[in-house]
């Protein structure tokens, strides 16, 4: 089985891109399943089910979504292996711009949209910088020049990635993406011993543990203060 991790900011078009891409994969006779990770709410699982795609949904709730992803990716992979799928696509939203769910040796796709602003590529951390494929969506609503500028900004922060333009509504470009997602060589039997491409940010302060009160005396653990003095003004 092949595992593919897809990640990207909320509403960038991940689900649309995945759905259209799976259409093309299915035509090649491949059995595809999806694991959808989100934070508080998603009904994307219904969209997948409607399309006849086996799907598992995980909501991280009060936990950090990406930490939740890593804690569950092995189980979800085993589920897909047991069901003898050819490809498992994991979908997760990069919520804090610092995390990335990518695993060394596992194909990583980042979905980002043209409307997010030309400085966005600089702001997104490892999720964009360590992806193998960067899919840029919503190109139909901006000008050719903006598409070119945006793509070149993405290329500056991740020169080794392959950059693709996909229209999530019409599916233009999704066939092309589908040709890059499955190969015999990327076959895995388990995730045992594998590693994340990038460490997730440290947490564990009193607020992680449920503290709600504001004020220095309630802050414990991994706490850092901004420099707020007049010299900085």
């Amino acid at each position: 089985m092949n595992l593919v991790t897809v990640s990207g900011p909320p509403s960038s078009g991940k689900t649309s891109v995945i759905l259209k891409t799976i259409d093309s994969l299915k035509k090649r006779g491949l059995k595809v399943a999806v694991a959808k990770f989100d934070c508080l709410y998603t009904d994307d699982d219904v969209l997948y089910e409607k399309a006849g795609i086996p799907v598992k949904k995980g909501l991280s709730g009060a936990l950090c979504p990406d930490h939740y992803f890593v804690s569950n990716v092995e189980e979800i992979t085993n589920w897909a292996l047991k069901n003898q799928f050819d490809i498992l696509i994991s979908e997760s939203a990069g919520l804090c711009n610092r995390c990335s769910p990518y695993i060394k040796g596992i194909k990583a796709v980042c979905v980002i949209d043209n409307l997010s602003g030309i400085n966005t590529p600089k702001k997104i951390g490892p999720m964009l910088k360590t992806a193998d494929i960067v899919v840029i969506t919503k190109g139909d609503i901006v000008s050719q020049a903006e598409r070119e500028v945006f793509a070149s900004r993405v290329n500056t922060v991740n020169p080794s990635a392959m950059i693709m333009h996909i229209n999530g509504l019409t599916g233009q470009g999704s066939f092309e993406l589908s040709t890059l997602l499955y190969s015999e060589e990327n076959h895995i039997d388990s995730l045992k011993g594998m590693e994340l491409r990038f460490p997730m940010p440290a947490a564990l302060c009193s607020y992680c543990l449920g503290e709600t009160r504001i004020g220095e005396s309630y802050q414990m653990g991994n706490v850092r203060k901004m420099k707020v003095d007049d010299d900085n003004d």
Partner: peptide, 9 residues
Amino acid sequence: QLSQNMNFV
């Protein structure tokens, strides 16, 4: 590609 929509964001 020059699309019909020429929005600038």
